[in-house]
Design a protein around this nucleic acid. Structure first.
Length: 571
RNA sequence: AGGGCGGUGGCCAAGCGGUAAGGCACAGGUCUUUGGCACCUGCAUGCGUAGGUUCGAAUCCUACCCGCCCUGCCA
């Protein structure tokens, strides 16, 4: 029988083509419910920076629109002037663009619909479906009832249409103090769904809106803004997180009462990640409490932080595709994210040599003053990546952890009498070590090299188990390297036991700064955000703190380390 | 406790009455001038629990258990 090649394995590594939202959309497409259109939107409130959870939402909404040949809008949900700022609008646009999505000219602001929304409100008043209420916030809470007890009708519920019209106009005209009156939808105070117990549509609030200044002193609530904004923009599928499931009946009620075009809201589970917190309020606490350096601190799960850390937009989109979409609560392991960034960087990051914790190696039989230039491949995963020259000389630095005086089993690196390969250079053998008289710390390792192994090969078939990275001392460039560990020590910091504060689970060792690192000279002018693989050490990204005086790198993620695993097993 | 939504291997997630996809993680192994990458192998007689319907159930029915969300004039 003829030998045949193994069958090609179909590698489908995501489930984005089969999630329940897509199934619903396909049904709508088949029944022609929305005229065969698919039009989605991503509606952030400009009150903070986008995080990886938003990336999931963006990938779902925009990704679906792209895949079905539809359109997607970027809409700022800015109906609360108290929390919103232009700075955030710009940051959000930067991050969405960075992720690789282009909303073209479809940038909208819910606040631009304020006039229309006001007219909608008047329309509901005229239909007898909305009324001005004078209850105070406390009273309103009491009248609302509880989860198990029905509410009570407001004493202002039966005001006449005429009176409501006059009062609502008065609200807009600034005749009433903040918080003194609201416009409410007249629905059902005994509904088991609390959102339907005459929800507030408008509040009196004298606050400066970042976009409309002091033009308004009444502002519509989320519930009276969102569905109508979707309707106005011709959205077909309004995708949001499960938090809004209970709001869907209200979303539908307003659109039906208004008798305007009605999109469909579909909810999915929001993302949770181990060893971090997601959610704007909490991230804000970290920033304002000084627990991190800012929204773009490389430890933050914000897109700005991840960008600075060295994450690529491709890796984030890959991650979002891999985790799938469902309605079940989830807690995705960091390892999943790390897999996506390693996979992406493996293919695109140029390899360079950098010694983070240097110890000097002197090659005694190498001619003093001699310098050789070796060719080093830039990326074994990319044949088009080419090569670069790296200088070699009599004195080099190697990683301190790559030498052990008394090596355990399976240690393949340098040790007394042992021979190892210096990547791209020569085989060297350790002859002796010099220690500091006082501390006992190794300060020099003396070796000899084999001139017959130039480039790292030998003709005699001799095998060496270890290959070390190195940097020539006289050519080395100094650098600062920042290593990151998880922001929290708990897998699920937000599930802090009662009475405990999640902030106490912050990892005191989430940042480690290495000041004495030596990198190969090709990196002198590496620009911020450029990414590299430091051979055998991990993926690193030039930080924006870099100056012409000092290079600063962030470790994006370490390489997988099976030696560390062996060591753990030996203990 | 009223309502809503969920419960498939350590973490995600397909499955839509015909006999448990895939990914991450993990464990072995091959290869290797990165202890990286790649490649190979293994990893749920089981789908919250208990009954029932059926030739056949993760999929249908009944009851129960567990988890999350909802009592802002936030979104």
């Amino acid at each position: 029988m003829k030998h045949s090649d193994p069958p090609l394995k179909e590698t489908i590594n995501n489930t984005s083509d089969t999630n329940f939202i897509r199934q619903e959309i396909e049904k709508d497409l088949q029944t022609n419910r929305y005229d065969s259109r698919v039009h989605t939107r991503f509606p952030p409130e400009p009150s903070g920076y986008l995080h990886i959870g938003h990336a999931k939402a963006i990938c779902i909404s925009f990704g679906i629109a792209e895949d079905y040949g539809g359109l997607y809008n970027l809409r700022f949900d800015d109906s609360n002037p108290l929390t919103e700022e232009s700075e955030y609008v710009e940051a959000i646009k930067r991050d969405v663009r960075w992720l690789g999505f282009d909303w073209k000219d479809r940038e909208y602001h819910a606040s631009d619909y304020f006039e229309t929304l006001y007219a909608y409100a008047v329309n509901l008043i005229e239909k007898g479906k909305a009324y001005v209420c004078d209850l105070t916030p406390d009273e309103m809470r009491t009248y609302r009832g509880t989860l198990v007890a029905p509410g009570t009708n407001s004493p202002y519920r039966d005001r006449s249409v005429e009176e409501n019209l006059v009062l609502f106009q008065g609200m807009r005209d600034g005749e009433f103090p903040d918080g003194s009156r609201t416009l409410r939808a007249k629905i059902d105070m005994s509904s088991p769904n609390l959102n339907m117990r005459d929800p507030v549509m408008y509040r009196v609030l004298r606050a400066h809106h970042y976009r409309h200044g002091d033009n308004w002193c009444i502002y519509p609530t989320y519930d009276f803004t969102h569905g109508q904004s979707d309707s106005i923009e011709g959205i077909t599928h309004s995708l949001c997180d499960v938090n809004f499931e209970d709001h869907r009946p209200l979303y539908d009620w307003f659109l039906e009462a208004l008798e305007i075009y009605q999109p469909r809201q579909i909810e999915f589970a929001r993302l949770n990640l181990t060893y971090t917190v997601l959610g704007k309020r909490k991230l804000r606490v970290l920033v304002e409490g000084g627990h991190v350096r800012g929204w773009d601190d490389p430890r933050m799960p914000t897109l700005a932080g991840m960008r600075r850390r060295g994450y690529t937009p491709e890796s984030i989109r890959d991650f979002c595709n891999r985790i799938g979409v469902s309605k079940a609560d989830n807690l995705i392991e960091m390892g999943q994210l790390e897999y996506s960034i390693r996979d992406n960087l493996n293919r695109r990051a140029p390899r360079v040599m950098a010694v983070l914790d240097p110890v000097k190696v002197i090659i005694n039989n190498y001619p003093e003053g001699q310098v050789e230039m070796f060719d080093a491949e830039n990326n074994p995963e990319d044949e088009n990546a080419g090569t670069r020259k790296i200088p070699f000389s009599r004195e080099i630095y190697i990683e301190r952890e790559d030498f052990m005086e008394d090596p355990p089993r399976k240690f393949f690196r340098l040790a007394p009498g042992r021979e190892v390969r210096l990547k791209h250079a020569y085989y060297i053998q350790c002859e002796r070590v010099v220690k500091d008289e006082n501390t006992g710390e190794i300060v020099e390792i003396h070796c000899t090299y084999d001139p017959e192994t130039r480039g790292g090969w030998s003709e005699d078939g001799r095998r060496v188990r270890g290959t070390l990275h190195w940097v020539s001392t006289e050519h080395a460039v100094d650098a600062e390297v920042r290593l990151y560990d998880s922001l929290f020590t708990e897998r699920e910091p937000e599930s802090a036991a009662e009475g405990e504060d999640w902030i106490q689970f912050l990892n005191p060792d989430s940042l480690e700064i290495l000041n004495n690192c030596k990198v190969e000279p090709s990196l002198v002018d590496a620009p911020p955000e450029s990414r590299y693989q430091f051979l055998r050490m991990g993926y690193f990204c030039v930080d924006s703190d870099t100056t012409s005086e000092k290079l600063v790198f962030n470790r994006t993620v370490p390489l997988r380390d099976s030696w560390a695993k062996i060591q753990r097993g030996q203990k």
